[in-house]
C-alpha cells in the first residue's frame, strides 16, 4: 500500500489538489489554482506532474494511502470489518471517493485497480494454503473488488443506499466470499 516516496513538494501538491477537489466538487481544477494553494510556482507542479493523468494517479494513490488508509488486518477473516470501516470513510469524503474510484478505472498503466491485493494474498496464503489456483484467484479478486471505493460508488448510485446500508452490504458480501473457506484454515 506504500506508494513511491514523495518529496515534501509533491506531498504539498497532492494535499492541495485533494483539498480543492473537495471544495470545488470536481477534479477539474487548474494547475495555477493548485500551485497557489500549495504556495509554489505553477512550473513546479508541471515539473513534478507533467500531465493531468500523472497528477490524478498520484493524487488518488496518496488519498488511498493517507485519508482512506485501512487499519491493518491480521487475518483474512478480518477483511469484512476493514471493508465496513472503509465504506464509512468513503462516505465521509464523497468527492475524494469518486476520484479514487474513477482513477482506478482508467485502464492506463500506473492506475492501481487493486492496491490491497498483495496484502490479501499474504493473509490468505498464510491461513488457507490449501486452495487451488482458480479458487484462490476468485477469492482475492472478489475481496479486492469489494474493498474499494467502487463499492461505495456503485451501492450508492445504483441502489441509493446510505452509509450504514452500504457498509452493511459490502461487509456482508465479503463474509459470503469467505464462507467457503471458513473451515479450511491450516492448523498452527
Amino acid at each position: 500500500m506504500t506508494g513511491p516516496e514523495l518529496s515534501g513538494t509533491q506531498a504539498a501538491i497532492l494535499a492541495a489538489y485533494a483539498e480543492l477537489i473537495e471544495e470545488v466538487g470536481s477534479d477539474d481544477v487548474s494547475y495555477r489554482v493548485i500551485a497557489r494553494r500549495a504556495g509554489i510556482a505553477e512550473r513546479t507542479v508541471f515539473r513534478n506532474y507533467p500531465t493531468r493523468v500523472d497528477l490524478l494517479l498520484a493524487t488518488a494513490a496518496w488519498i488511498e494511502a493517507t485519508l482512506f488508509a485501512r487499519e491493518k488486518s491480521h487475518s483474512i477473516f478480518d477483511i469484512p470489518l476493514a471493508i465496513r470501516d472503509a465504506m464509512h470513510r468513503y462516505d465521509e469524503r464523497p468527492e475524494l471517493a469518486h476520484v479514487v474510484a474513477e482513477t482506478a478505472m482508467r485502464g492506463v498503466s500506473g492506475a492501481a485497480p487493486s492496491p490491497g491485493r498483495a496484502h490479501l494474498e499474504q493473509l490468505l496464503d498464510a491461513e488457507v494454503p490449501s486452495l487451488d489456483a482458480a479458487q484462490r484467484r476468485a477469492i482475492i479478486a472478489a475481496l479486492s473488488h469489494l474493498d474499494s471505493a467502487g463499492t461505495w460508488v456503485t451501492f450508492r448510485r445504483e441502489f441509493g443506499l446510505d452509509r450504514r446500508d452500504i457498509a452493511d452490504a459490502a461487509a456482508w458480501a465479503a463474509e459470503a466470499v469467505l464462507d467457503s473457506i471458513r473451515n479450511r484454515v491450516a492448523p498452527t
Binding site: A112, P113, S114, S144, L146, T154, F155, E158, L161, A173
Partner: peptide, 22 residues
C-alpha cells in the same frame, strides 16, 4: 445485500479491475 452484490460483480468495474489489476 444480494442485489447489490450481484450487481457489483456483474459490472464493467469488475471486468476492468480483473483485467488491468489481475
Amino acid at each position: 445485500r444480494v442485489a447489490a452484490s450481484l450487481r457489483y460483480f456483474s459490472s464493467a468495474m469488475f471486468w476492468s479491475r480483473l483485467r488491468t489489476g489481475f
